[in-house]
Design a protein around this nucleic acid. Sequence first.
RNA 1: GGUCCGGUAGCUCAGCUGGAUAGAGCAUCAGCCUUCUAAGCUGAGGGUCAUUGGUUCGAAUCCAAUCCGGAUCACCA
Length: 591
Amino acid sequence: MSILHILQKNTVESLQVLYGQDFSEQDFQVNQTKPEFEGDYTVVLFSLVKRLKLSPDAIGNALGGHLVKTYPELFTGFNIIKGFLNLSVANSYWISLLEKNHNDVCFGKQAMNGKRVMVEYSSPNTNKPLHLGHLRNNFLGWSVAEILKANGYEVFKSCIVNDRGIHICKSMIAWQLFADGATPASTHTKGDHFVGDYYVKFNDEYKKQVSELMEKGMSKENAEKEAPIMQATQQMLLDWEAGEPDVMELWKRMNSWVYEGFDVTYKNIGSDFDKTYYESNTYLLGKKIVEEGLAKGVFVKDPDNSVWIDLTNDGLDRKIVQRKDGTSVYITQDIGLAQQKYEEYKIDQSIYVIGDEQNYHMKVLKLIAEKLGLPNAENIYHLSYGMVELPTGKMKSREGTVVDADDLVDEMIATAKQHTEDLGKVKDFTTEELASLYKTIGLGAMKFYLLRVDPKKKMIFNPQESIDFHGFTGPFIQYTYARIKSILRKETLQPGASLGADLLPLEKEILITLEQYPTIVMQAGREQNPSAIANYLFHLAQVFNSFYAEHSIANAENESKKQLRLQLSSMTANILKSGTALLGIQVPERM
RNA sequence: GGUCCGGUAGCUCAGCUGGAUAGAGCAUCAGCCUUCUAAGCUGAGGGUCAUUGGUUCGAAUCCAAUCCGGAUCACCA
């Protein structure tokens, strides 16, 4: 139990003893004491004044006195300033916390709670390579899954691949028209980029054809429909749905190129999935759902045979769930998949990591699932994250401002290499060790940069800022870890050693911060928010570095101080390592 | 227009279950490597927390209105 929680509980008990009244932990606030006052934790007394009809000073004196008297091993003194009761926590509490946990690499992890959760993330289209936006999604999804595991959930990572539809046919048509049989192998191109290039070619040709038709006097709207390449694409989609062998073969072939490329990227950035769903399989579930919904009266059929759901009573609109030609739309497939996930994994919660541009869509999905009476409908949760923008504005594929994921990863690794070489601290590393270090640092910088901000908010990706490895960055934390490990290699930590009874301010500050880690992990899990971890780790590293600059560990004043500081260092390193692991970031022993 | 989200230092962001003088990083300026890794540390300057009103002992935080920015409202996914 956290010290904050203990203090809350003790306060409730004391108030009961002192005044015979039942208070709950929500009836008053406990904070960390501001540095300018004496004490460690502060009970804010104002909210108790009204109910007890006593002055803040009277309550503070009674409560402070009672706490110190009743829990002398915990509280050593108190003072009251303007309605704030400041309590000092005994050094022995902090020191025993350190003795117990300095070597526990699982500190902060919760026991299994028996709940099963699925986290769906990444969800790429197979017509173009991954970009910066996908990276935020991938890092977020992966990290949230790990954070939930640390909170005791059994987690399944899943991915729905959007592998069919008109956009896929566009790349296929363009390949037929322009590739002349070229393949990723023949052109030495990564498969997903190769296919993406034909998607671009499609759009170029389409634009050309539309403007040609418009020059001949056709309206823009008609030209967009009549352009031969678009007509061919629509025909191809029909052929695909009819299972036409040539089309299916080409589709499989081009998708396999894309998957080869994706695999490389996923492996590189450390994304993995327990289950991959393919839209080409799940879209058929739509029909069944629509029939059931019609039978239940949840859906209605219009005269033209299209099927709708009326959500106007829920403040939304009428929404189509099946086209008049009987084909299923995006949302229908999602309902089917939601059900399939539940049936296959018996999950208690289903999390969707999807951009906030789809807030409306996800609201509709959940509503429909509820109206259909799907068993886990109320546990569908949209983890909605903000878009990634550039300092110049939004990324636009038409304007070529999309930041490619593979390029970015390469750039970050190259930057890590450059910095490392400039500093020249690891000249004895082998080529393999260096390559691994560059990757650890480059990816660490990138992941931290994308995870350090609140996922719900849109963020700006500043290329210059992202390759700065100083300050609030991944490498700063990695560096702090490497520094500690350097000491721990040279000095011997003796587990049962006497640590003395005194704590210097900076030593105590580290301990107070270390103690918060389990609370932060819980908070990050509750909020599904990796940035809580990132902010915490940065703060911990900062506090440790201040301590490190101020006090010597190897040449401490005496042996018990040295052992105390070695244990502080060890526990800090463990938390830096396990915390960064929750963000998908590794820490190097040297850098 | 309807719905939803956001506006905190020059820039990027914390803080938001109401609590003491609003915090970091970057950038700027001034210091600190003969002792454990300077990818570090110490200090300085920098704020009408969009605006106005309300709630109360107390508001960046809660409520309302206004202004500004964004997302979304397809027989696209």
